[in-house]
Structure formats: C-alpha cells, structure tokens
Simulated assay, not measured.
Amino acid sequence: MAAGAGATEQARLAAERVIRLKRELADAHVAVQRLQQQVQHAERAERAWNAGAAGELLVADRLDLLASDGWLALHDVHWPGRPKANLDHLLVGPGGIVIVDAKNWSGEVQLRRGELTQNGSVRSKESVSALDQAGAVAALLEPQHRQLVQTWLCMVGHPDLKVVTGAGVRVEGLNTISASVLELPKVLEPEFVGAIHHYLLQLLGGERSPALLTTAGLASADGAGATLQQRRMASGRMRSQQADRSIGPTGVRRSQGTRPQRRKSGRSKKKPGCLAVSAQLAAIGVALIYLVNLIGGPDPSDVMVPQPTPTVSQPADSAG
C-alpha cells in the first residue's frame, strides 16, 4: 500500500458522509417548513371553527327568541345526502321553512355585481351551498310545501348587513335577521308548523343523515326509490289503522256516509274486437238475405202475365 493511502480513503469516506448529512439537513429543513405551514393552517382552522361556533351560538340565541311568534327552531342537524355536513339552523314558522347558515367572516363583506365578496374576493361558493341546502330539505317535504323552503346567510361580524345575491340568496346581519323573519308573509297554519317541525326533527335530528331524494340509485336497496316506497307503505299502514279505529265494537263503521263497495265477479268476460263483430254482422246479413229469397221469393213460372183485352167493334146501323 502506498504512503498515505489509508488517510486518503478516510478523507473520501468523510467527504461522502458530509454530503449525505447536508442532504439530510436540507430534507429536514423542507420537512420543518412543511410542518410549520401545517401548524399555521391548523391554527387558522382552529380560530375559524371557534369563531364559527361562537357565531352559531349567537345566531341560535336570536332565533330561539322567535318562538313566541310561532317559529320553531332546529340547530346543528343533518344535511340530507351529506353525512359529514350539517345545517346550522332551521326555522319552521308562519312564513315557511328558513334555513340559516351562520358565517362569522372577518374583513370587508360587500355585494358586488350580484356576488358576495370578502376583502375583494368573490365568495360565490356560499350562495351555491345555500341553494343546495334548500333543495335537499325541500325534497323531503310534500309538493305543496317545497316552494316554502329558502336558505339565508347570516353574517355575525356584520350585524347590519342586508342584501340579496344575484342567485336570490338573502344575506342578513345578526341585528336584522329576526325582523326579516317576522316580515315574511304567512303561508303556514300553526298545525302545519308543528307537524313539519316534528317531522324534520325526527328525520334530521337522528344519528344518521337521511338520503337525498333524487332519481339516482332507484334500483338500490337504500336508494331514493326504496325510501319513497317505505314512506308510502308507512302511510298506507297509518290509513289502515285509522280505518280500523273507525269500526265500532259491533263491527259497523261509525261513518254511515260511505257505500259498501261491490265485489267484483270472479269471471271476467272478454269483449270481442271490432273485426270479429263486423264479421258476425256480415254473416247474419248474408243468412237473412238467403232466407228471404228462399221463403218469400215467387216462382217465375207461376207468375201470371196480364194479356191485353181484344177490342170488339160494333156493326154500323143500317139505313132506315
């Protein structure tokens, strides 16, 4: 081995180790930066969720005060068709069904060219989400009540805001939302308000989010078609129970205004078609003509032909 060969080899290995450590240090620096960004994002999300939760509590307090005016509220219930999403607030009252999506936005909130903006940035996603919420809840109701559903955005940090977006979504502030709800025209009677509120509470306040009623998945066991069929069957059972309760202890119905239904005969006669009827009529006509000719027709040999009577000439009288 040449002089200094061992030291040269160690120097080479040390240089490779330095390069490897610098590479690991650079990778660690990138990882640290990534972790710092994740921490900052988590902190912003924490502040946003805390602000959102505080805003929802403030909005809930305002909406609960409307109970004395006939408005019943639901808070933090399922969004139909979205198991991981929720509806902040839902009101059922004389003015219909109002979904309230609470927003605790910071900065400047304005309406520009029909679009809601925050600090100059367009927030059109919130308007689309509001329309989706209204559509999902409306699909759960009877047809005559679906048009009574609407979704409003409530800006907690801008209490006096009152605008309407180009998509038709109302934006109310914390100080204006109660008065706006009370200004809605009366469209529901108190008994319907209680019934719809109880129905939505049972459907949206359970452990599982109800399926969104659409034409998709009609053939599936848990699709919209199955859900509708289950509801119709349940409605049929309720009508059957009501009919049973209407029968008195003697077996006679309490309501005497209805007629007993006639039992249908077990035999069903099949009506002949037009072609068969025409053929039958034609055959009958031919038979009648044949019988007439056979019975009442005269024999040509027996017919007496009248002969002309000869004229008799009288002889002339002879002259005196």
Score class of each variant (00 low, 15 high):
Leu13Cys: 07
Val18Gln: 14
Leu21Glu: 14
Asp27Glu: 13
Val32Trp: 12
Arg34Leu: 14
Gln38Lys: 11
Gln38Cys: 15
Gln40Leu: 12
Glu46Tyr: 15
Trp49Tyr: 10
Ala51Tyr: 00
Glu56Ile: 00
Glu56Ala: 09
Val59Tyr: 00
Leu66Thr: 02
Asp76Arg: 03
His78Gly: 02
Trp79Ile: 01
Trp79Leu: 13
Lys84Thr: 07
Lys84Ile: 04
His89Gly: 07
Val92Gly: 11
Ile99Glu: 00
Val100Ser: 02
Asp101Ala: 13
Val109Ala: 10
Arg112Val: 10
Leu116Cys: 03
Thr117Cys: 13
Gln118Ala: 09
Ser121Arg: 04
Ser121Trp: 02
Ser124Asp: 03
Ser129Asp: 05
Ala130Thr: 00
Ala139Ile: 07
Glu142Arg: 15
Glu142Tyr: 07
Pro143Gln: 08
Val149Glu: 03
Thr151Trp: 00
Trp152Tyr: 07
Cys154Ser: 06
Gly157Ile: 03
Gly157Leu: 01
His158Val: 08
Thr165Ser: 13
Thr165Pro: 09
Arg170Tyr: 06
Gly173Ala: 09
Leu174Trp: 05
Leu174Cys: 12
Ser180Asn: 12
Ser180Glu: 08
Val181Ser: 06
Leu184Ile: 03
Pro190Ser: 08
Ile196Ser: 13
Tyr199Gly: 06
Leu203Gly: 00
Arg208Phe: 09
Leu213Glu: 05
Thr214Asp: 11
Ala216Cys: 10
Asp222Glu: 15
Leu228Val: 07
Gln229Asn: 09
Arg231Thr: 09
Arg237Trp: 13
Met238Gln: 15
Met238Ser: 14
Gln241Ser: 14
Gln242Ser: 11
Gln242Asn: 10
Arg245Leu: 15
Gly248Tyr: 08
Arg253Lys: 03
Arg253Trp: 02
Arg253Ser: 14
Thr258Leu: 13
Arg259Asn: 13
Ser265Ile: 06
Ser265Asp: 09
Lys269Glu: 06
Gly273Val: 06
Ser278His: 06
Leu288Lys: 06
Ile289Arg: 05
Leu294Ile: 02
Leu294Thr: 04
Gly297Gln: 04
Pro300Trp: 02
Asp302Arg: 11
Gln307Ile: 14
Ser318Asn: 05
Ala319Arg: 06
Gly320Asn: 03
